[in-house]
Design a protein around this nucleic acid. Structure first.
Lengths: 109, 109
DNA sequence: TGGACATCTCAGTCCTTGCTGACACATTCG
DNA sequence: CGAATGTGTCAGCAAGGACTGAGATGTCCA
């Protein structure tokens, strides 16, 4: 099912550039295996840094770097464990994640 | 509306790494402004290289490089214009695009 | 309080990747 | 055919980003 090609011989030069800044920024974050894994794991609920580091076979400080980027863009936030403040838990900001997905959907959908 | 934190004091080390390879690969392509713009513009129908290059303010060979990457991963395909073979038109492979979106949706959804 | 543990920060290094420039190839038109 | 135009390819360069190592901070427990 292929759309018909335009019948013009001259290319249409009035095509305008779409605004994909938000989608590209979100996709850029998702483009890294570690960050994509983090967001996928946090889909099922909060996890602490050491849990995710162990699951991914990455060092804790490396994961902390990636979490910082996700934190700066608002996709995740850090929360303290009530009974054990030593572990740093993270959870997704579902509103921000939904916005990111919507931006990507506008490009691909 | 925040999910309750696990009551365990010890971190759960049995967490397994999710498979995000396809999502990360797709997002990596989308993470570039030029490629994201291409996919967005092609959403509304085929366009030739010079049209998109003009719209984005990019050189044609640069666009050709990006189109090559999208072609290699199957997201777009090249088609010839019937009445003017000088212009190279591109269209999306909607099946491949839908797969890419589904992979990303599995991570963010 | 001191030690162990979990995390954060940051500079340095290395690798990846986007852009450019030059050239090759194909198609159209005079 | 030869010139002009549109596109593809590729090496080289430069900028960006991921990973590491060392040190600092904060929390729990003996």
């Amino acid at each position: 099912m292929r759309a018909d090609l335009p019948v013009v011989v001259q290319p249409r030069l009035n095509l305008e550039a779409p605004d994909v800044a938000e989608a590209a920024a979100a996709a850029s974050l998702l483009g890294d295996r570690v960050r994509a894994s983090i967001l996928r794991m946090l889909r099922d609920g909060p996890h602490c840094v050491c849990e995710m580091a162990a699951a991914l076979g990455e060092r804790e400080n490396n994961l902390s770097n990636h979490l910082a980027k996700l934190r700066e863009t608002g996709l995740v936030r850090a929360i303290r464990h009530e009974s054990n403040g030593r572990f740093q838990y993270y959870e997704r900001d579902e509103t921000a994640v939904a916005r990111a997905l919507a931006a990507i959907q506008d490009v691909l959908g």
